[in-house]
């Protein structure tokens, strides 16, 4: 089946074409959400960090926010800052602009209060939405970066089969990011710093021992255009810019949570049928790339959390 996506100026491939209203700090998150809510296909994230941070914790937050702006599913970025925060909104804008995508920024303390910022933000976002509109072109699975999230509670026997499934997916998909906890299953997996943009094809592992949302957030920041979440518990976590494909490994959970789970693989998993699972998943991934909404997209389940490594001061 032909795959269609958005080819960005820097050659990256998006499978969605979102305008992201990106708050540099919690203090501008509600304002960003109010701008995003006013327009279709415009999304925001609930950034709870961005100030009073130090050291590696600050750089990790900056890297993650920058990664969201750089994610190829994002066609344009409007950064909204407060004006006195630790993460510099202008610096963030300049970094994202290096990708040649459409970037602008607003600073509440400069624009002058909430009403002006929201008014200007909606006006600006409206222009940007039109400017980023572009036709889809032919793309390839090798252009895709796939994040894999695996519930901590999944047992060893299932993990062995899932790791074979992931191997098969990685044969055709350009980049696969797995949680660090499962690196032992993949001898050729390379370490990926949390939230850092991936530039070369291959299998990577990134920090785990985190909640699913923090892990997903890191993968999206690294450039994942879509995520497969193998779930034992049915955690509904979704992302505002990269479609999350929920894949149940537990029949009972699928029965409860079928509304937000795209696929139940518990039966073929019990039969160790990795080729069936792989082909089912590739078909869902293909549909997702071609624009069919995943269930978490339909339900608008948009979660966000940055993996914090030091407390806020």
């Amino acid at each position: 089946m032909a795959l269609k996506g958005y080819i960005r100026e820097n050659g990256q491939v998006g499978i969605r074409n979102k305008l992201l209203i990106l708050p540099s700090v919690l203090c501008s998150s509600s304002t960003s959400a109010q701008i995003a809510d006013a327009l279709p296909n415009v999304v925001s994230i609930a950034n709870q960090a961005g100030c009073a941070q130090v050291g590696d914790d600050l750089t990790q937050t900056e890297r993650t926010l920058m990664g969201f702006g750089l994610n190829p599913n994002v066609g344009g970025v409007l950064i909204v800052g407060l004006g006195c925060e630790g993460v510099n909104p202008l610096g963030l804008a300049n970094k994202v602009a290096e990708s040649k995508k459409l970037v602008d920024y607003l600073v509440i303390q400069q624009v002058g209060g909430t009403t002006n910022t929201i008014e200007k933000g909606i006006e600006e976002a409206n222009k940007m939405v039109n400017a980023i509109d572009e036709p889809k072109r032919n793309v390839d699975l090798s252009d895709i970066c796939l994040g894999i999230v695996i519930d901590n509670s999944i047992e060893e026997s299932k993990l062995i089969v899932l790791s074979k499934v992931i191997e098969v997916l990685s044969d055709s998909i350009g980049v696969v990011i797995i949680p660090k906890r499962h690196q032992s299953y993949f001898s050729d997996a390379k370490e990926l710093v949390y939230g850092k943009t991936v530039t070369e094809k291959g299998i990577y592992y990134t920090a785990s021992e985190l909640g699913n949302v923090a892990l997903m957030t890191g993968m999206v920041a690294s450039g994942a255009q879509t995520i497969i979440h193998f779930t034992e518990d049915g955690d509904p976590a979704g992302s505002s810019i990269s479609p999350v494909i929920k894949c149940s490994v537990n029949e009972d959970i699928f029965e409860i949570f079928w509304e937000h789970i795209d696929l139940d693989i518990s039966a073929p998993l019990a039969q160790n049928n990795e080729s069936l699972i792989s082909s089912q998943l590739l078909s869902v991934v293909t549909n997702t790339i071609n624009g069919i909404d995943t269930k978490s997209e339909m339900l608008e389940l948009n979660d966000f959390a940055i993996h914090r490594i030091l407390p806020t001061f």
């Binding site: 009073a52 407060l82 006195c84 925060e85 630790g86 001061f313």
Partner: peptide
């Protein structure tokens, strides 16, 4: 204790406190 925790993190307050906005002000 707060200051000790900060030192334990090996990091400097400058950059976080006062914040860039504080310094500009």
């Amino acid at each position: 204790k707060y200051e000790e925790n900060l030192k334990k993190s090996g990091m400097d307050f400058r950059g976080a406190q006062p914040s860039p906005g504080n310094i500009q002000g």
